[in-house]
Design a protein around this nucleic acid. Structure first.
Lengths: 264, 264
DNA sequence: AACATAGTTTCGATCAGCGGGACAAGGTGG
DNA sequence: CCACCTTGTCCCGCTGATCGAAACTATGTT
């Protein structure tokens, strides 16, 4: 061991390997073999085999009965779903999301506030043949997404400070990385109730988002529409803004908010 | 050790514990503490703590910064979603499912064939205020669900034999557990292209399902509608049957099937 | 028939990870 | 304000769960 720290500082190896295996098997659509996993993760066949056997036994991985390849089991899906389920947001937003999509014909997306970022919890694909949108499970930053900015703008002062003083990663050259500029935009967003982020999360894309407020009046999530930057301006169509604001208010009510908007 | 097998036959303990922790944290909507986890899983605080630390470090679990409770991280959602994503079915069926729901006003559901059963991969809630339906991630049996029966009926002879000779669990008193009776129903289903399962998976519920066929002509999944047994007969409304068959055919085409139905 | 490549199993050595207990930080109530 | 809980976190020496390497089996290929 060349540069080993005397203590263990990297975490429990079996845990890491377990999750690496699960991740690998899950991402690789079709069956994976012991050997390819072993080389991919840089460890021995027998180790992988034992871990896989245990995962099979626990139902997280499934082994094709021809005694060949390993595939991901259904428990993983169920697990991921459980996370979404016990966020009341996903249930409250599903129907409104559909209505929003139908009303203005764009991909609609709902996200939930987490301390690490905005977690995309539900999406509805737009009518466009091209697939535009965000994946469920993605995490959007507070400085580089309309969702993040709008949620931060409607969170506590302390939270905003944490965002502003934290690291502001640039995802594109249009991402806001200057704390002052971001603070100014927060104020603006708070006043009008919506945010956009043209080319800020990814070049060519834009999102229009509004906050979902809970009983305490703080943001707990966002709803919005996603489209190509060329079709969705930094100052979007007033009709679109109205539709998003309206949807946000409706979901907010379901989440226990009074419905009285603290803006425009 | 009372009845210990001399060797390890139970699988790697750290793997088991890891998944138990993840499961526990995921199912418990809100934050869990080290101590409660330790008692719930019957092990020591330090062990749980180390495992949790590693999971945090890997991003699967998130620790509230007040240095208090542990919650599930976003990676899990992303992982479960990945499983769904690399089944082309979920993408192909989403829109058709909505159309089906809108056409006949019932909860619509799509499932995918797996060797263990039918995995529910997409659902659309009906307009009814009561929530009727199946959860994404659920696994439906081959003998006790319309989805399972229809998929088996449109699978290979060998597959059907495996189902018929396997264990036929009774979920209700109406579940078919007699192999001969089940074989007869398979034949019938294959001839007409749809199946129902009134009160067979759960008392009070019924499902009408049709097969999604792939390029090879074998079933790779199902679409269908779910409703109360009293609203959905064993011999459903011809209009509903037509709608479901139609939807199934459309999705089948997206999956590479010719569209020429091998039945009615 | 020899070879190649897959998954599985065995076995003894070893170090990763365990238990138990100390420690710090809040919270509570007397 | 101070004992007294109850948290989560950290430390350390012992040990058995887990590892690597190699043998074994089964299939497919040359």
């Amino acid at each position: 061991m060349p540069e080993g720290d005397k203590k263990m500082a990297e975490g429990l190896q079996s845990v890491i390997l377990t999750m690496q295996i699960v991740e690998h098997v899950a991402r690789t659509g079709k069956g994976v073999g012991v050997t390819s996993l072993a080389t991919a993760l840089g460890t021995s066949k027998s180790r992988i085999h034992r871990h896989l056997q245990t995962l099979v036994q626990q139902g997280y991985v499934f082994q094709h009965e021809d005694s060949e390849r390993y595939e991901i089991g259904h428990q993983l899906v169920s697990l991921g779903q459980a996370v979404l389920d016990n966020s009341g947001l996903v249930g409250a937003s599903r129907d409104s999301l559909l209505a929003l999509r139908d009303r203005i014909g764009r991909s609609a997306v709902a996200s939930q506030l987490t301390p690490e970022g905005m977690l995309v919890i539900a999406t509805v694909r737009g009518p466009s043949p091209i697939e535009i949108g965000v994946r469920v499970g993605s995490l959007l930053s507070f400085n580089g997404s309309a969702q993040g900015k709008v949620a931060a703008a409607f969170s506590s002062e302390a939270f905003q400070q944490r965002v502003l003083t934290g690291e502001l990663t640039a995802y594109t050259e249009h991402t806001i990385t200057d704390p002052e500029q971001l603070a100014a935009e927060f104020a603006e967003i708070r006043a009008r109730g919506w945010a956009t982020a043209p080319n800020q999360a990814a070049l060519g894309l834009n999102t229009l988002a509004s906050p979902i407020l809970d009983a305490s009046g703080a943001a707990c999530g966002t709803v919005g529409i996603v489209d190509l930057a060329q079709s969705l301006d930094a100052e979007p169509d007033p009709e679109h803004i109205a539709a998003v604001l309206d949807t946000a208010r409706r979901i907010s009510v379901l989440m226990g908010h009074s419905g009285a908007l603290p803006f425009g």
